[in-house]
Amino acid sequence: MTPTVLLIAEQSEEDLATLSRELAGFASELAEMTRCIPLALLLGQEASSRGLELAQATGLDVVAVHVPGMSTYNSEAYKGILQEMVPQLNASYVCMVHTSQAADYAPGLAVRLQAACITAVERLVKDRDRIMFARRILGGKWEAHVASNTSTTVLTVQPGAFRPVSGSGAGRVKHVSLSFAPRSVRSLGVRQERRADAHLDAARTIISAGRGIGKQDNLEILHQLARILPNSGIAGSRPVCDLGWLDYNRQVGLTGATVSPELYLACGISGTVQHTAGMRQSKFIVAVNTDPEAAIFQLADVCVVEDVRVFIPALVEALKDELKRRRE
C-alpha cells in the first residue's frame, strides 16, 4: 500500500467545508512532495452521513469511521481510534487544522505513534530532499524550520495559512464502524459561555487594543478615535481580555472572532499567530507599536513605530484637521 498523507477532519458542523478544504490544500501539496496519496478521515456518530460531504468538499477519498454514541469530541476516543487506524492506512503524515480540538489530542497521539509532532505549521519548505515545516516562534517574530526524524509525523496546520482546494469532483467514501467507550475522560457536551462576537463582522473599521495601551483607562483614547471613524468598533487581543479590560466577545484571534474589515488598526498589539489568525484577511492593516521588530508589522500595510498613547491622540487631531479642511 502506498504511504498516505492522512487528514483528520473535525466533527464540528460549521467549519467542515472551509477548514477541510484548506487542510486538503496542505495535504495535497505535502503528498506531491513526498509521493504519498492524500486521504481524509472523519470520526463520530454522524460520520456516515458527513463522509460524503467531506468527499465533495475536498475531492479526496474519505474513510468515514462511524462511532456509535460519540456525539462530541472526546480525546480518549480520538487517540484510541486513531492509534489503530493510522498504521492500517499506512500514514506517513497525519494532519489536522490547528483548532482547540487538534491541539488537545495531536501531541498525545504522536507519543502513541512514536511520531514527531509539529504544531501550527504555516508553510512547507523543501531544501534539497529535506522537507521542513515552517512555524512561528517568539511571539511571531521568527520563523523556525522544523524537520521530523521519525517515519510517521503528526502535524497541525495554522487556519488560513494554506489555499483551499477548489471542487474537482467527489472522492469515494469507505465506511467503517468502530465502538469505543472512554473510561477516564467523560464528555458532558459543550455549552455557550458567551454571546458570539460583538457585531465585529458588521464594522467597517476595527480599532484593536493590545497590551501596549498600558491600562484600561487608555481605551478612552481609542473610543475618541472610534467616534471620528464612521461605522467602527473596538476589539482587542487576548491578553487585554484576560486582564478584564475588554469583554471576551471583543477578542480577535483563535477561539475569538475572525474579522476582515476595510481597516484594521492594531494598537499596541505584538502580533502573535493566535491574534493574526483572526485578522490577517483584513483589507487594509495599520499597526502602531513601539517595538520596530514587532511581528504585527510583517503583515501591516502601514507601520507606525510609536507609542499608541501618544500617537492615537495625534491621529485624532490630524483627522479633525483633515475633516475641517474638507468642509472649507
Binding site: N74, S100, L188, T255
Partner: peptide, 10 residues
Amino acid sequence: IERGMRDVLE
C-alpha cells in the same frame, strides 16, 4: 473552544 463555547468534561 471556538466561537465562545466551552467543552465540559470530567
